[in-house]
Amino acid sequence: MLEKIQGLGQLSISILGGLGRAVLILLSAIAHLPNFRKGFPLFVGQLYAIGVLSLIIIMVSGTFIGMVLALQGYTVLVDYGAEGSLGPMVALSLLRELGPVVTALLFAGRAGSALTAEIGLMKATEQLSSLEMMAVDPLRRVIAPRFWAGFFSMPLLAAIFSILGIFGAHLVGVEWLGVDRGTFWSVMQADVDLRDIINGTIKSLAFAFVVTWIAVYKGYNCIPTSEGISRATTSSVVQASLMVLGLDFILTAIMFT
């Protein structure tokens, strides 16, 4: 009995300790705004590694998810003669939910895991230590540009995802299944509000924050062995995905009720 209580205590302490370290890393990454001359090229480089390299998967998934939504939505809506609502249905699902959420999940798998593994490997090969000994702060040099690049990339990726999804839905709904082109767009324009786009972007920023934070923290804090890195990478993706889904529920409850 006593041992179980002690175990619980140990667990809580280690969770709190981890949280504390994560917050410290976050604070120093944010507080150390990189100086522009040295920091900007690093930021651009990470924008490439994180944003540009995720582009293909985001574009392909966005288009296909839009196409599937249109196909599924059409078969249901046509029974009620409401296929005119296909446009807003697809646009609202993409802008409010699927765009930010699926982008964040794909991002966690594509870019988050790579971030964790890269930072973890830098730690294991003593590159982070050696930066410190060269009087270069690894938080500023390694963590901060990656964090900011992730934060900046995700909303852009989500917007690209959504617009391609709507394009895909147009392709299937209008070109293939024969929904009237005018109805498709005008009903969508009547029902979608600028607020939907802003809320979707806010969601996206929140997810970007959480996913990149978890990714850099897991990498920076991993046990520097091959097993430790593999575990850190897995848990980075798993935890980031769960956090995204949980956070999505909370944000949806706040924004759309």
Binding site: T125, E126, S129, S130, M133, M134, A135
Partner: peptide, 13 residues
């Protein structure tokens, strides 16, 4: 630390 330097076992390049 700018006045000291360390050669790591792995090189850490």
């Amino acid at each position: 630390r700018k006045r000291m330097s360390m050669l790591f076992q792995s090189g850490a390049l």
